[in-house]
Write a protein that binds this DNA or RNA. Structure first.
Lengths: 133, 133
DNA sequence: CCTTGAGCTTCCAGTTACGGGAACCTTTAT
DNA sequence: ATAAAGGTTCCCGTAACTGGAAGCTCAAGG
């Protein structure tokens, strides 16, 4: 099948598929006319990548996971290690966002939000974050 | 003061300060030798930007906020609107991360993580996300 | 046979918010 | 005089694509 159908079936944009090929995540054959020809294995890889990306794994970790996926002699511990590291990073991001959210939410609460210029949000942003001379 | 001290006092890297000037967030004077000269107002802007960035506002919103900050006739409602939109985006990101986290956490739990190749994580990633022909 | 349109190709630029490093000038201290 | 520290500009690289241009191929219609 051509890239159009591969895109439709995998749910990935054509651009993304070409990009994945460019960075060596897959290597579809080419037809005589230069068109990419996707086999079922390519399609499976694309689905795998789409799923891994949806879970937030960065591309290089997707590459690693794909390698493990294709390696029949992998140890599940290797996969778990990658996943756990990623999980830790997600937790870190969530914490960071929650902290921002808390501060910002307080500020929004405190701002009356009317036609007057007085604003606790700006006051907080302006508020001296300067190290003394 | 020169850029070094401005960086130290604002907590922002010199690179960042130059970048902010480049995209027009501030316009420090120049000395005869070409060195930037930072006044107190510049320093205040830098502190403001550092704080706004720390709350996750993207640069263009920082620009907007800085504009409002410098506009004595602003309405606090404008500031609040910007902040609320940003808050909504943060909430969205948190939700997305939490959803990833939930799935990933389940998968990690399910993986025994030993020397054997059998792995529920890979099984899930591989698991058919393909639209039927 | 010709044309039109869809589908495919490659290549280049832009996105976000900087960071690294080169090449070079100025100031300060020894 | 010289060396170190601090300043300048400029250009490349990041992550993971997305958009668009120019051009080739293929299937259908008149």
């Amino acid at each position: 099948m051509n890239i159009g159908e591969a895109a439709r079936r995998s749910g990935l944009p054509q651009k993304t598929i070409r990009y994945y090929e460019e960075i060596g995540l897959l290597r579809p054959d080419r037809d005589g006319n230069g068109y990419r020809r996707f086999r079922d294995t390519d399609l499976h890889k694309l689905a795998f990548l789409g799923r891994a990306r949806a879970l937030g794994f960065p591309i290089e970790e997707c590459r690693t996971l794909l390698g493990l996926y294709e390696d029949d002699s992998r140890e599940s511990a290797s996969v778990k290690a990658v996943a756990e590291e990623h999980l830790a990073k997600i937790d870190q991001k969530i914490d960071q966002l929650r902290s921002m959210r808390a501060t910002l939410s307080d500020l929004v609460q405190a701002c009356h939000g009317d036609h007057r210029p007085d604003c606790p949000i700006l006051k907080d942003l302006a508020g001296n974050g300067l190290t003394p001379t």
